Simulated scan of single mutants.
Amino acid sequence: MGRGKKDENKICLSAEQRHRLEDISRNGHAPAKKILHAQVLLMADEGEWATRHWTDEEIAAALNLHRNTVGRIRYRFLADGEQPALNRRVRATPPVAPVVDGHLEAQIIALCCSEAPEGRTRWTLELLTQQLKARQIVAQISRETVRRTFKKNKLRPWKVERFCIPERDLPRFVAQMEVVLDLYSSEHTADAPLVCMDEAAYQLQSDLYSPVEMEPGQDTKEGYHYQREGMQSLFMFFDPNRGWRRVSQRDSRTSIDWAEEVRQLLDVDYPDVPVVKLLSDNLNTYNIDSLYKAFPALEAHRLARRLILYHTPRNGSWLNGAETELSVLSRQCLDRRIASPAELKNELEAWQQERNQSAAKVIWKFTTDDARVKLKHLYPVFEAAT
């Protein structure tokens, strides 16, 4: 076992042992503890192959260890051999029973997925911990144990996702959806551009107290209370292929407002274009009737001849590219308090100018073929003819 003949505490390595330990200390692939223990044994070697005699204190100082650690490694080598001295001792610990077994976990899941008690919106960690004890499901359990069970089973009672189910019993939704998807996939020329249109409401607000500006080590602060200064309707016109957009504001969003915005689109934004393909949602004011309501028949007819209307289906506003652009506008420009229509106008014009200079476009890749695969559950089911 490498013991000296004269001194029971002396480590004398054979040439084979020393070569093996040197390989371990140099290769860098062994565990760090094993490499460290190999270095201790090499430095503690007092055999014929050793080049220097190191005391335990010197070894401990050189390897940044405690003297007792060096002594334990020496003792294990002399008592048990090379491998026990190199490797960590495996402690025999009795198995610990899990706090939450399968049966209790199933009961926690069932309770969490049930309706919350009267007077409470949803289950919380504290409420669930209390109810598990009150219903005598378990005698004692901590909030942290319940939290780990939540995390393990991906239970999030505080999170609610909303969804909108189209009319699955009618082919109307998929029919209008495929029209819009085919429209995006079609080629659009300069003489017949595609323009997406959407609108949104924006509430003007002013501060009751002047906000505190940000400084190093201090965040911006603004008063919780504010003064409502009225509403503005925003109209977004967006050409996804050209990378152009126009956003305007109005006091209302009536059919007259829409008709006047369309006339500006045709006569100011696209004056030399024979026809514009306009995609909007299915609001009842977005139709040719509104042109005849706002203008004389001759003028309405002139505008109508240059306009081809397309509508997204109900519950299908995600098909409108202008909705994406409104989301960008909200994040980049409108996520703050703006007090007056004039201030709003200046901010919209600045945002619009910068965005048009970058010519940010939308590349639509979701096609009709993709919809028939990924949205197959929305399509009517037909039985095979016999």
Rank of each mutant, 00 (worst) to 15 (best):
A385W: 00
M197W: 01
L329V: 02
W244E: 04
V381D: 02
S340R: 10
D267L: 08
V268W: 03
G81Q: 05
E105T: 08
K374G: 00
R67I: 11
K133P: 01
E383T: 01
L329Y: 07
P98N: 11
E16T: 11
E118T: 12
E167G: 03
V273G: 12
Q140D: 13
R88A: 15
V174L: 00
I256P: 01
A92L: 13
G28L: 13
R3G: 14
L125D: 05
E118N: 08
H225F: 11
T129A: 14
V146P: 13
R250C: 06
R355H: 13
L208M: 03
L63V: 09
T220Q: 11
R147L: 08
E213L: 15
P166S: 07
D335I: 01
R228Y: 02
V273H: 08
L303F: 07
L86M: 14
R336N: 10
V138M: 00
D101C: 09
G119D: 12
L319T: 04
P157T: 10
V247R: 01
D101E: 07
V100T: 14
L181V: 02
V381G: 04
S358M: 14
A342M: 07
L128Y: 09
D182H: 09
Q353R: 14
R120K: 14
I109V: 15
E213P: 05
R147D: 00
V100G: 09
V179L: 03
E118C: 05
V174T: 14
P171C: 00
A175M: 04
K33M: 12
L375K: 03
V90L: 12
V328W: 03
E126I: 08
Y202R: 12
L234E: 00
E325K: 08
T121C: 05
L278K: 06
R122Y: 01
P98Q: 09
S14G: 14
L125S: 04
R52V: 11
T124S: 15
R156Y: 11
I288S: 08
R147Y: 09
P117I: 06
S280L: 15
S210T: 14
Q332Y: 06
Q205D: 06
H301W: 06
A304H: 03
Q218T: 07
G28M: 13
D267F: 04
E213I: 12
K374D: 06
Q357S: 08
P240C: 03
G223P: 00
T124K: 10
L63G: 05
L125A: 04
S185D: 01
